[in-house]
C-alpha cells in the first residue's frame, strides 16, 4: 500500500507542509525535509520552482525566483532527492507547474519520481482533460498520485470526476485565491466545506491556502482530513537558523 493511503487510514488532522526546493539555499532541500518530519509534519510538498507561478502569491513567487537565481533545476532537485528516503519515511509530493515537467519529459519525470521515492504530484496548471488523455497512464504506471485542486466555484459533477481520477487526496482551496491569503471561515466558506464533506468522496480532503496558525489549522481539520501550510512556512524559514525556525514554527501547530 502506498504511503499516502496508509497515512490517511491511520491518522486524523493531517498536517502537510509546502516548501520551495532550493530555498533559502540550494542545498537545503533534504535538511528541511528531515527537520519537518522530526518536528511532526505528516506530508511534505516540495515545490519545484517556476519562473511564472501564476497561482502563487508574492511570498512563494519570491522564494521560487531566489531558488532559480541560485541555480535550482528539476534535474538538480532529483539529484538531491536521491538522499530523500535515507531518513524520510512520510509521504512526499512534488508540486510545480507543467512546463518544467514537459521540458524534463513526462515519462522521465514519472520515472525519476518513482526512483527517489516521491509518492505523488500536484501540478496546478495541468488540466484534468489533458491529465486523463496524456499523463494518467504514466502516473499510474509509476504509482504516482495526482492531486487535483477544487475551489468553492467547482461544480459538483466536476468534483465527482476529480474524485474518480485521483488516488491520493483532494486539495480544497479555501477561497478562489492565489496562495498567501488568510483563511476566513465565513458562512459561505462554511457552507462550501460542509457541502464537500457531505459529498462522501472516496478520496480524503485537505484544505489548503490560508492556513497560518493552530486556530486556522484546527478549523480546517473540523471540515477535512487535514490542512496544508505553504506561505506561512516559507516566510518563517526565510532567514536565521533553519533547524530552529522549523522547530519553532511546527510547535505552533502542536498541542
Amino acid at each position: 500500500m502506498n504511503r499516502i493511503k496508509q497515512l490517511f487510514r491511520e491518522k486524523k488532522n493531517i498536517l502537510s507542509i509546502y516548501y520551495t526546493a532550493g530555498y533559502p539555499n540550494t542545498g537545503d532541500t533534504i535538511q528541511i525535509a528531515e527537520a519537518l518530519q522530526k518536528s511532526g509534519a505528516d506530508i511534505l510538498e516540495i515545490g519545484f520552482p517556476y519562473s511564472d507561478p501564476v497561482a502563487d502569491g508574492p511570498v512563494i513567487q519570491a522564494s521560487s525566483k531566489q531558488s532559480l537565481d541560485q541555480g535550482m533545476t528539476l534535474k538538480l532537485l532529483f539529484e538531491q532527492l536521491k538522499e530523500l528516503r535515507k531518513n524520510v519515511t512520510i509521504p512526499v509530493l512534488l508540486m510545480g507547474y507543467v512546463n518544467p515537467v514537459l521540458q524534463f519529459g513526462v515519462e522521465k519525470f514519472c520515472e525519476a519520481c518513482a526512483e527517489v521515492g516521491v509518492d505523488g504530484c500536484i501540478v496546478p496548471d495541468l488540466p484534468m482533460v489533458e491529465y486523463e488523455e496524456f499523463y494518467k497512464d504514466c502516473f499510474e504506471k509509476h504509482n504516482l498520485a495526482n492531486v487535483f485542486l477544487i475551489t468553492p466555484q467547482t461544480a459538483e459533477e466536476r468534483i465527482r470526476k476529480i474524485d474518480g481520477l485521483t488516488n491520493g487526496f483532494i486539495y480544497l482551496l479555501s477561497s478562489s485565491a492565489t496562495t498567501g491569503k488568510n483563511l476566513e471561515v465565513g458562512n459561505t466558506t462554511e457552507a462550501y466545506f460542509s457541502r464537500i464533506k457531505g459529498m462522501d468522496l472516496k478520496n480524503p480532503t485537505m484544505i489548503g491556502f490560508g492556513i497560518s496558525d493552530k486556530q486556522t489549522f484546527d478549523k480546517a481539520c473540523s471540515y477535512a482530513n487535514g490542512a496544508i501550510i505553504g506561505t506561512a512556512f516559507v516566510k518563517a524559514i526565510s532567514e536565521g537558523n533553519l533547524e530552529e525556525n522549523i522547530s519553532n514554527f511546527m510547535k505552533k501547530f502542536k498541542d
Binding site: V54, P124, F148, L149, I150, T151, Q153, T154, L173, A177
Partner: peptide, 19 residues
C-alpha cells in the same frame, strides 16, 4: 472542438480559473 490547433492550444490553467 477541444481548443487545439494541431499540437497547440488547450487551456492549461489552475482550477481557480476554470469557471
Amino acid at each position: 472542438e477541444k481548443g487545439y490547433y494541431g499540437d497547440f492550444g488547450g487551456a492549461y490553467i489552475p482550477e481557480m480559473l476554470y469557471p
